[in-house]
Amino acid sequence: MTTQPKKARVSTTVNGQPVDVLVAPYQSLLEMLREVLGLTGTKEGCNDGNCGACTVSLDGRIVDSCLVLGAEADGKRVDTIEGMARPEGLHPLQQAFLEEAALQCGICTPGFLVAARALLEREPHPSEERIRLWLAGNLCRCTGYDKIVGAVRKAAALDGAGNGRAAG
């Protein structure tokens, strides 16, 4: 057993706020968010890249935060589910998920929302096929997906869902 490696200092921007933290060099970005910063909106499902529950946006690209080291976020911008709603109300995707009953237990929901937001920012009016392909890295054990896809379509139909409101 070697000695504990020294902590890495990470300067990052989380949901627009500058953040300076110390993390163990082997800690994932998911652990950094949840355990060091107390941002527990990002969920752990599988911890191996298969379920997408831990999806966050890193410098504008969605990643599985369980497969990124916290140390790698140094100098980068991280956007999580906590940055999605605004004081004046929910993001149109969040609203649509509620209205369409696109969640049951809710563990997968933050990941789906962050991933769907990234899609609508790039492609404001995606086809159903495109939505399903884009969200293939997110698993849901409850809904059977149709309601999730329906909610994304509904949000996409509302103008500007992907613009302005989104931080990532």
Binding site: G49, L58, L135, G137
Partner: peptide, 9 residues
């Protein structure tokens, strides 16, 4: 290779 999240990395 993987989904969109995996392809980002």
């Amino acid at each position: 290779i993987g989904g969109i999240q995996i392809q980002s990395r």
